[in-house]
Write a protein that binds this DNA or RNA. Sequence first.
DNA 1: TATGAATGAGTCTTCATTCAT
DNA 2: CATGAATGAAGACTCATTCAT
Lengths: 189, 189, 189, 189
Amino acid sequence: MAQETKARIRKAAIEVIAEEGFFNTRMQDIADRAQLAVGTIYNYFSSKDEVLSYIFKYEIQRRMKSISELKEQKLSTRRFLKKFLDRHFLTLRENPNLGRVLVREKEFSRAKDNNEIKENMNSLIKMLEDIFVEGINKAEIKDINAHLMAVYFFGSMQGIIEFALTEPEIEMLVDGPDFIIKRIEHIFK
Amino acid sequence: MAQETKARIRKAAIEVIAEEGFFNTRMQDIADRAQLAVGTIYNYFSSKDEVLSYIFKYEIQRRMKSISELKEQKLSTRRFLKKFLDRHFLTLRENPNLGRVLVREKEFSRAKDNNEIKENMNSLIKMLEDIFVEGINKAEIKDINAHLMAVYFFGSMQGIIEFALTEPEIEMLVDGPDFIIKRIEHIFK
Amino acid sequence: MAQETKARIRKAAIEVIAEEGFFNTRMQDIADRAQLAVGTIYNYFSSKDEVLSYIFKYEIQRRMKSISELKEQKLSTRRFLKKFLDRHFLTLRENPNLGRVLVREKEFSRAKDNNEIKENMNSLIKMLEDIFVEGINKAEIKDINAHLMAVYFFGSMQGIIEFALTEPEIEMLVDGPDFIIKRIEHIFK
Amino acid sequence: MAQETKARIRKAAIEVIAEEGFFNTRMQDIADRAQLAVGTIYNYFSSKDEVLSYIFKYEIQRRMKSISELKEQKLSTRRFLKKFLDRHFLTLRENPNLGRVLVREKEFSRAKDNNEIKENMNSLIKMLEDIFVEGINKAEIKDINAHLMAVYFFGSMQGIIEFALTEPEIEMLVDGPDFIIKRIEHIFK
DNA sequence: TATGAATGAGTCTTCATTCAT
DNA sequence: CATGAATGAAGACTCATTCAT
């Protein structure tokens, strides 16, 4: 029950923040969209920043769970990355607002104590790094700098999304996975 | 004299906004950085929004002037685009803060009446479009949709910068021009 | 509940504005007098101007309601006007601060878009005009220009109050109704 | 020469203040109207308040001078008052803006240390009082309270002007002198 | 004397957050 | 848990006043 309300707030926040931007969004706006009173939000979140943090945390943990699940499928590194990207981009096509928030508001914490978002992103990057390390160990990919590769891979995802959201069409989100894989083609043996 | 002060404000604003983000920046911060009183800023700008608008306007007009100058050199379309990108990326390497502002804060006007920034960007895109049209007329490039190409070209510039600013190194800004030209290689006859 | 707070703000504002004048009054002053926080005022009024507008609107609508009630009593025009004035001047004797505000601050909207105050005053004048028209139709008063008469009548009310507030004594507010009736004596048949 | 500039500022201030009200008038507005720089005003006046004070002082002293001149003509009290009023109302008909300022802005000093305006007004009232005292001594008027009479006389002048400025026509300023004299008719023996 | 750019104290207004119901 | 009125700190903006030229 309680989780339903928290999810409702999260979804409402994604919508409003996607439309207005985090700084232009008032807690009242989120409450209105969620058809709740402002006070109610504070029963689930301690601050406005935490609402945004939670959006990132929630989505990043889904990605990490996705990675964990894929790991059990014993796929080749290439197929692994392809499947991960497919899932990620599918989610964003289904919910472009989420993409807008994840890409545009990631910088909000600059000059704030709150680096929970960055920590979450780094956890995700760490998991990607592990994939590359494993690929190297399995001799599927060349002996590259796995950390740098993970950062680059993550950055590309962001770039494609940013680009796709700028474009009038959202086509880019369909071709995104292949586009990214092509850019790292040279690392595969 | 007056223009010196306005330029000082513009430069101070770029620095502070790059560091803190537009919404986290107070007028007092800009004034402090420019070693001026807040009131002085309002002798040159009517609002905080206008300060940011002016940064975009100023830089975009420089780019447009750059395009006009290059036009007089009667270069091939490929060399024209390469030179334009070289200038642009050189400026950003010399002043990364400017890049950060131009890329990260371009969305600030969402949900605001103020779309001066977007208008300025569209003017620049229009100029790029003219270049592609001319290239088609001179039979240097294939018969593509010039407008779409211009949008894509502009989007790529943004993407590279975003990516470069995310990376710890700024190397990307060196290779950026070639990177972009390579992505549109297929349009040249 | 909510209306209680709004009324408290209205009353506090009348007191402070009567003492200091609208332009010398700070929102903080009104809040202090009402024993509320400044922010609370903005839960009921969108701006400082609107607080003043509301004072006028509120009082003018009371006068209009007073006229409507008197109309049902089927009085002669002379007695009607006398009773209306009696009520009005009694209110001001009971709350001289209100008189001060209504008379002194009516001009605040000059050079402002906000002419709500003037619109409200004109509504009241229109009701007075109707009274005169009715008097003419009932052959109780001469065939005068009803609109001009209403304006004059209203102006006299204002004049008496202004005068009374200048005088050390407030006696004028007692004799006011008769004073005004005497000045329009010639219109009665 | 210097006095010409000071007069220019005074006249410009009367115009702007009549149109916008004292509180809505900025020093820059006065400077613009006078076709001078703001700084110049401060060579002649020490503050914004002082500009308004000066307008009152200047006009009140003219009235006092007018009274002094009339005194030398050895007129009857009635004719004296009539002539004084004629002059005053003629001036206002010629310069209605002046009337607007004198009537509407007389209250600005409330809650301010600055009561120079009130002092000047009281000086004028004192002179009027002397006229009534003299009239009593010359047995031309009844043994009334001269001070109260002067206050009433002065208040009537203000009232008429306020009324005349509210009315669409300015006719009232023509009949004003007679109107006032009639109201104090009973004091003459 | 005239100028007008620079100053910063003073206010309005916003909005995240609290808390009594 | 839900509510939404009350709170007040924070920040944009104004404008009288100063002063170097």
